[in-house]
Simulated assay, not measured.
Amino acid sequence: MLTPYLLSLFHTTITHANTVNLVRYIYWALDCVRRLVQNIFDDYDRKKCKHMRNVFMKRSHTLTMKQTWYLHHYCDKSQLLI
């Protein structure tokens, strides 16, 4: 499910018909939301979220227990990451 913020990011970009560019725009939108949200975190969480940004892009069944914990930890801190 796309949040209204993600939908607004798609309206500002030019989407091409091929799937490679569409997937790239999805990853850019997710990264933009992550950067926007991590500005509200404290110093430790902001730096750790920057290093752990790959957990937002991985499939859930490939995450380790530690990565799953960090994913839930950061998703609980902000409503935009849900």
Rank of each mutant, 00 (worst) to 15 (best):
H72Q: 08
V37K: 02
P4C: 03
N39G: 12
F56A: 03
V33P: 02
I26R: 01
Y25P: 01
S8M: 06
Y5G: 12
I14K: 07
L80Y: 05
M57W: 09
M65H: 09
I82W: 14
F56I: 09
I14Q: 08
R34T: 13
S78T: 01
K48V: 13
T3H: 09
N54V: 14
S8G: 06
N54W: 09
K77H: 11
K66C: 11
R46Q: 11
L71V: 04
T3D: 08
T62E: 02
D43H: 13
I14G: 04
K66A: 14
Q67W: 00
A29K: 00
V20T: 09
M65S: 12
V23R: 03
D45Y: 12
H73R: 04
R53T: 14
L80K: 05
Y5R: 13
C75Y: 02
S60T: 07
K66Y: 15
Y27C: 02
L36V: 15
Y70C: 05
S78P: 01
M57H: 09
L71G: 02
V33K: 03
L7E: 13
S8Y: 11
F10P: 01
C49S: 10
T62N: 08
K47R: 09
C49E: 00
D42Q: 10
R35D: 15
V33A: 07
H72D: 04
Y25R: 06
V37N: 00
C49V: 13
K77E: 01
D31P: 00
Y27R: 05
Y27N: 07
